[in-house]
């Protein structure tokens, strides 16, 4: 099961650079980044090559950071690619709490990363439908 590092940040200049500086200093690579904003504050979500280590580095510098379990699947980078996965989730009444995606140009593929309440069930459903689930290391190798 892959992990995402979630970091609390005030909505102020310099808050991202503080996080990226720590990761860079510890030679941790960022695969994807997204920010959910809630006015005064937000959560920075990071896909890292070494999520557990990245999380520890951030915490040790006093940052509110945590590891979150996520689901990551490979989809075709073509029209309807995401829809196929989404409709499986929909027909099984699985609510996606938070999601983002990115494409892998050379392979004509894309990755869909999301949070759900019941991860094992979601993974099973998608696996049965023929989707390729990604682990932490696989995510980084893309």
């Amino acid at each position: 099961m892959p992990h995402q590092v979630s970091v609390f940040a005030e909505n102020k200049p310099g808050k991202i650079s503080r996080v990226t500086e720590i990761l860079s200093r510890n030679s941790i690579n960022i695969r994807a980044i997204t920010i959910s904003d809630s006015g005064d504050y937000g959560i920075i979500k990071l896909l890292l090559d070494k999520p557990a280590q990245g999380n520890e580095c951030l915490k040790s510098e006093g940052i509110a950071s945590t590891l979150k379990d996520i689901v990551a699947i490979k989809i075709d980078d073509s029209p309807g690619g995401l829809h196929k996965a989404a409709s499986i989730l929909a027909s099984n009444s699985i609510n996606v709490e938070d999601a983002y995606g990115f494409t892998i140009r050379e392979k004509n593929q894309a990755v869909f990363v999301f949070q759900v309440e019941d991860i094992p069930l979601t993974e099973k459903l998608l696996k049965n439908a023929g989707f390729e689930l990604l682990s932490d290391s696989e995510l980084y190798l893309l």
Binding site: F8, S36, S38, G42, I43, A64, S65, T66, K68
Partner: peptide
């Protein structure tokens, strides 16, 4: 926020 109890969830 107390960092040890941060859940990463908005």
């Amino acid at each position: 926020l107390y960092s040890k109890l941060f859940k990463g969830d908005l």
